[in-house]
């Protein structure tokens, strides 16, 4: 049941571990797109926010087809978290947007990338399901 899926707390450090996440989307006519994003933000147990910066293809796809898949790598735990999510809405202000924007601005400004990494929106996705894949794969939940 997608309505009852809740993200566990142990995914929070994985979201903050600084390892870029992989996002896969698909256009309405079935063409997939994979991109790397710097931030997956834990909003609440059923929502995550993805940083909308410059991956226009991803945005176009989820406007057409709201389903997406996010892969998070946990090097310390030698695991990968796969989240099936659905685009909900975009935020250009507020706490979530500010938190994500600050993180990006802090690093981007120190690396001379302020003009490149500029948060345009915090795209809020509802978590439909997630899987934790260990190596060797040990468990999965839906």
């Amino acid at each position: 049941m997608t309505d009852t899926v809740k993200l566990p707390d142990d995914i929070k450090p994985v979201m903050q571990n600084g390892i870029p996440a992989t996002v896969v989307t698909c256009s309405a006519d079935g063409i997939p797109n994979t991109t790397i994003i710097s931030q997956v933000y834990y909003v609440d147990p059923v929502h995550v926010a993805l940083s909308f910066q410059f991956f226009n293809k991803t945005i176009r796809n989820v406007r057409e087809n709201p389903h997406a898949c996010v892969a998070l790598n946990d090097l310390e735990g030698a695991t990968e978290w796969i989240l099936d999510v659905q685009y909900d809405h975009s935020e250009t202000e507020g706490t979530i947007f500010d938190e994500m924007d600050m993180q990006i601005e802090a690093i981007a400004s120190a690396t001379g990338m302020s003009g490149i990494f500029k948060l345009r929106a915090a795209d809020i996705y509802r978590v439909k399901s997630f899987r934790k894949i260990s190596s060797p794969p040990a468990s999965s939940r839906e």
């Binding site: 903050q16 571990n17 690093i107 981007a108 001379g112 990338m113 990494f117």
Partner: peptide, 17 residues
């Protein structure tokens, strides 16, 4: 502001750069 995994984030941004 709290920031963790600063090195990785710097590495990521530097790679893009």
């Amino acid at each position: 502001m709290r920031v963790n995994h600063l090195r990785r984030q710097h590495e990521y941004f530097s790679t893009i750069r």
